Amino acid sequence: MREHLEDWAWAQTIVRFTGQRPPDQVVQSVRAIAVVDDGVVVCSLSDGTSFLPGGTREEGEPVDDCLSRELAEEAGFLIKGRPHWFAAHSGVSYHRIPYKPYAPFPLKAWLWGAVKGELIGPPTNPAGAEQVAAVQVLRPEDAVAVLESEGRGYAQALRYWMSLGAPVDL
């Protein structure tokens, strides 16, 4: 993997993509490659923005629990097995204050995992969270094409996961 620095202005953080897992205490958010049969889950907002499900940890929340919660909220996805944590976007924030009072700062990371499961219903779309308008299952190659222009590391993480042989723990 060729590592390079990126400025994620939306997060006010300089990040690098790495295959090394960061310590849990610097993980601010988790993102998932949610595997259903031979495809991966891609969520969309009403404005057409597409993304891989995941989100910010709650105070004191373990990363595995966060992934499970976020997948239910954003995709109506039920995890079967344990996540295979395979990469992270790790960085240093240049904002003046933490994203949330309990969030790691200035070091932070977005942890990437892959997990098998099934779609069991619509997204729960809790108040105050992103409101997912559509959930689809795409072949990984098609998901990369859809996510390529979205930024935020989605296509990068998906391509890397595919290069590892698309591992998922059962």
Rank of each mutant, 00 (worst) to 15 (best):
L5W: 09
L5T: 04
D7V: 11
W10M: 11
W10N: 14
Q12I: 06
T13E: 05
T13H: 03
V15I: 12
V15Y: 11
R16D: 10
T18P: 08
G19R: 13
Q25P: 00
V26N: 11
V26E: 10
Q28W: 12
Q28I: 04
S29Y: 06
V30W: 12
I33Y: 02
V35P: 14
V36W: 03
V42D: 08
L45S: 15
S46W: 04
G48T: 12
F51I: 09
F51S: 14
F51T: 09
P53S: 10
G54D: 04
R57E: 08
G60D: 15
P62N: 00
V63Q: 05
V63D: 06
C66D: 02
L67Q: 09
A72D: 05
E73R: 13
E74T: 05
G76H: 01
L78Q: 04
K80P: 03
P83R: 02
P83M: 02
A88N: 10
V92W: 13
Y94M: 07
P98Q: 00
Y99N: 11
A103R: 07
F105P: 15
F105V: 15
F105Q: 12
A109I: 10
A109G: 13
V115S: 09
K116A: 12
I120D: 01
I120F: 10
G121D: 01
P122T: 15
T124Q: 04
N125F: 09
P126C: 05
A127Q: 08
Q131H: 07
V132Q: 11
Q136M: 12
V137P: 12
R139T: 06
R139C: 05
P140R: 02
P140Y: 05
D142V: 06
D142A: 15
V144T: 09
V146L: 14
V146C: 02
E150T: 14
Q156C: 04
A157T: 08
Y160K: 09
W161I: 03
M162I: 12
G165D: 02
A166D: 00
A166H: 00
D169H: 07
